[in-house]
Amino acid sequence: MKPYIRTGLIWSALMIAIMVGAVVWMVDALPKDGPVPVHFDMEGTPNRYASRFEAILIFSSLPAISAIVTVILAIAPSLDPRGTNIDAGRKAYVAVWVGVMIVLALATVGSCMILVNAVNGTPAGPGIVRGIIAACALLFVAMGNYLPKTRPSFILGVRTPWTLSSDIAWEKTHRLAGRLFIGAGLLGFLGAFVLDGIWPVVPLVALSMTAALVSVIYSYFAWRSADDRDNGTGRTG
């Protein structure tokens, strides 16, 4: 097993263990009968209820989904025809992998805390929700930092017909995409704490989608001006 895959698996195991622990704690706090809150607004106030069984099923799916994501990330480099490029950019791969797992763990723990507080009659307020949004924003900052360090692959990065057929287009696109996602993450992080209602999540979603769209469009123009657009090697640097 490649060392960076092992690192990702260790982090995943730790985060999934935290998620399972949070879900077990949440299940123990649920009432035996009656409806249970399963959905909350941006202030942490319940706005949908379900049975105890459905609540357990919903929250148990979070560590299960994380385990599936872990398996996909662990085997993806061996399935990618350009897997050696992922090996070369392994720091970026591990950073994104670990960042995703940390955010999933924080979202799971935060959601369980909100539910338990609601069951106990003490609404969590917007603090936990803001924290989850801020964590997502920091993930985008981390992704933006590592995007310029990636190498052409079918798994990670801005994968368009133009970036995959030109190393120069890949480099230029990911330098721009890195800056855009860092900016989106920083503004999203700020918005998580200064905006109210549903608005804290809006800047992060809107800016990240804009960053992705601009990167895709730019990749075409970078390809048009690239000297290797007809004979890219699939590997930069």
Results as ranks from 00 to 15, higher is better:
Arg6Met: 13
Ala134His: 09
Tyr146Val: 14
Arg229Lys: 15
Cys136Gly: 14
Val27Phe: 09
Ile75Asn: 01
Gly157Pro: 01
Val158Lys: 07
Lys91Glu: 11
Arg235Trp: 05
Asp228His: 04
Ser12Glu: 06
Val201Cys: 05
Ala124Trp: 03
Ile65Tyr: 02
Trp25Val: 04
Gly21Ile: 06
Glu54Thr: 13
Ser51Tyr: 08
Ser153Asn: 15
Ser111Asn: 07
Ala22Gly: 07
Val103Tyr: 06
Ser66Tyr: 03
Cys136Leu: 15
Ala142Ile: 15
Glu171Pro: 00
Ile72Cys: 12
Ala169Asp: 08
Gly110Lys: 07
Met26Cys: 11
Tyr4Gly: 05
Arg52Glu: 12
Ala95Met: 10
Arg224Lys: 15
Val116Gly: 02
Ile68Gly: 14
Gly191Ala: 15
Pro31Trp: 10
Leu79Asp: 04
Phe189Cys: 08
Trp162Gln: 07
Val96Trp: 03
Thr108Ser: 13
Met209Lys: 00
Ala17Phe: 04
Ile18Phe: 14
Ala67Lys: 02
Leu147Tyr: 14
Ser12Cys: 13
Ala124Phe: 03
Leu195His: 01
Ala222Val: 07
Val27Lys: 07
Trp170Cys: 12
Ala22Asp: 06
Trp199Asp: 10
Ala105Leu: 04
Val214Asp: 04
Pro31Asp: 11
Pro31Gly: 11
Pro63Trp: 09
Val119Thr: 08
Ile56Gly: 00
Ala206Asn: 01
Leu30Met: 15
Pro31Glu: 11
Val205Tyr: 03
Gly131Trp: 12
Arg90Ala: 14
Arg159Thr: 10
Ala134Tyr: 12
Ala135Lys: 08
Trp25Lys: 13
Leu104Thr: 06
Ser60Pro: 00
Gly121Cys: 09
Ser208Gln: 03
Ser153Glu: 03
Met42Gln: 11
Gly99Glu: 07
Met26Asn: 02
Tyr4Cys: 07
Ala184Phe: 10
Val216Arg: 03
Phe154Ser: 11
Pro63Ala: 06
Phe40Ile: 08
Thr45Gly: 00
Asp228Glu: 07
